[in-house]
């Protein structure tokens, strides 16, 4: 993170292709929100206020992925105005659920959805912010964790590195005392290849991890997918497990493509 600037640094929150859930996490900080506002000047945050201040900004939080030619230009302008730029959420860090288009022909979608497709200017792929500009820190999650967002802001204000573990979701299950749903129930769970941080939301409710926080630091997706297959999950279902909010994160994309090849070779055999 950049060195702490003098008084009341200016905060900006930017939106690209996304659902707004991650920037709402900032408003959702309730108890801490006034404290955040006390230490940062909220200079640009349209979800919170129409009043905006001109740049440059000390800290920019960027939500959403790049899906249009205009946005590809806009992120360049934002980067130039931002001393520190932090991307927040699965869209900004991995391309989001809308990156499912990356596995298809976007023109087909446009023709099916819009009566006048010639008005639509869109890019063939949804891409994370780091594919376009330098990013100082990536905060993963769909949506991001409120606790982790505050840690990133506190670290920025203190001029230290944020402490955001990149270990597996399994570590959260074990710290919380949640018995493994793979082991006790045979569920195909993405926890072992997914980064911790959500607060262990699903497994305590008996649901396997969806992978909302994207790949952990060293994801061995091939081994996990092999175990799913040996336990009776077919390759199409395994492919779909890896194709959700972080479908275009490289580790998940490669595994879903490998599963798709298996699926189509099975289809050829049939």
């Amino acid at each position: 993170m950049a060195k702490q600037p003098p008084r009341r640094p200016k905060l900006a929150v930017w939106k690209f292709a996304s659902c707004d859930g991650c920037q709402l996490t900032l408003l959702d900080c309730e108890d801490e929100l006034l404290e955040v506002a006390g230490h940062l000047t909220i200079a640009y945050f349209l979800e919170a206020s129409r009043a905006t201040l001109k740049g440059p900004y000390d800290l920019s939080l960027v939500e959403g992925s790049i899906t249009t030619p205009d946005d590809a230009k806009r992120i360049q302008r934002i980067r130039r105005q931002s001393r520190t730029l932090v991307t927040i959420g699965a869209c900004a860090t991995a391309g989001g659920i809308q990156a499912l288009r990356n596995f298809a022909d976007v023109d087909d979608y446009v023709r099916q959805v819009y009566p006048r497709p010639e008005f639509i200017r869109t890019l063939p792929r949804s891409t994370p912010i780091r594919d376009h500009v330098r990013v100082d820190f990536e905060l993963k999650g769909c949506p991001i964790s409120r606790h982790q967002l505050l840690e990133v802001i506190a670290a920025f204000l203190a001029g230290r590195r944020p402490s955001i573990p990149e270990v597996s979701q399994c570590m959260e299950c074990k710290r919380h005392g949640t018995p493994c749903v793979m082991v006790t129930r045979g569920l195909p769970c993405l926890g072992p290849v997914t980064q911790a941080g959500c607060g262990n939301l699903c497994p305590p409710l008996g649901r396997a991890c969806y992978g909302c926080f994207g790949p952990m630091e060293t994801p061995n997706t091939a081994s996990l997918a092999g175990w799913f297959a040996a336990s009776g999950t077919d390759s199409a279902a395994i492919r779909d497990l890896f194709r959700t909010y972080n479908a275009a994160a490289p580790a998940f994309r490669r595994e879903s493509e490998a599963q798709a090849r298996t699926t189509s070779s099975h289809a050829d055999d049939a």
Binding site: V167, S168, C170, M171, K174, R175, C180, G191, P192, V193, M216, T218, N220, A222, S223, L224
Partner: peptide, 13 residues
């Protein structure tokens, strides 16, 4: 290592 998920379950339990 081809099988190991480096997930940390073993050390946790």
């Amino acid at each position: 290592a081809e099988r190991c998920l480096t997930c940390g379950n073993c050390t946790s339990v």
